[in-house]
Amino acid sequence: MVYKLKNINVTYGQKQVLHHISCSIEKGKWISIIGQTGAGKSTFVKVLKGLVSFQGDYELNGQPVKQDSKGNIGVIPEIGFVFQYPEHQLFETTVEKELSFALKHKDMTKTVILDRISTILPMVNLSEDILPLAPFQLSGGQKRRVAIASVLMTKPEVLIVDEPTAGLDPINRTNLLQQLKNWQHKTKGTILFVSHQMEDVAQYSDEVMLFHRGYLMGHFPVETLFLKKSSLLKQAGLALPESIQLLQLVEELSGENIQVTSCKEADIFAKVIPILKARGLDDE
């Protein structure tokens, strides 16, 4: 499906938190949603999922979604939403019940549910041994993955993840991001990744949506933002990933324009390190 927003405004009480947002989200991309705290990222993804009321037009595949008089639409079932610290919201007595929760409310049979559990669990690197356990018996990282798996159980075509790696240790962070990437590849799904970690954004995204003070400053391919329009990031109060800073520093010192087409760290290192070595930085 194609999700299209036209001139969306959102107001909480007296305060307008989103201004004139127009965009379209297409299938199969990793789109990072970035901006400072309070820039409107969270509200934007809540609008997409249909969780907050708004003014403006929302189209699904070209068909307008009906709004009630208060500006609410129902939740969009094709979009999965993983909130921050989702493990705080686990409430069933076993992992199996937790995973089945959403589907049971859709009256699916037990065999269908179990079948789906066995395809979803490996995606987040969990084994079926934990199904009978109570969520509180699991480690922090496992709980997080159960919470994410319970959203994947509904087979969303778009997955919204709000700071999914917050509070995890470095290896668990990397693993989780890789699992999300794999899910995206396998299901041809879309990921909307709300994050403050510019390194992760540069590493995993296809596209980036940049928010600042309630405005959408742009929706770019990730390379365009980091390699060509990095001044926008500074305007929005965000730091550049260190690899980009390195690239810019070497460009500044050498006075050369280094041809880079990818903003992944390994690709930048591949271009920059030979220059550093050629400068003979090691022969002090």
Partner: peptide, 9 residues
């Protein structure tokens, strides 16, 4: 990472 990959350059 930079230190390592640059061969300690």
């Amino acid at each position: 990472r930079l230190h390592r990959l640059s061969g300690q350059a």
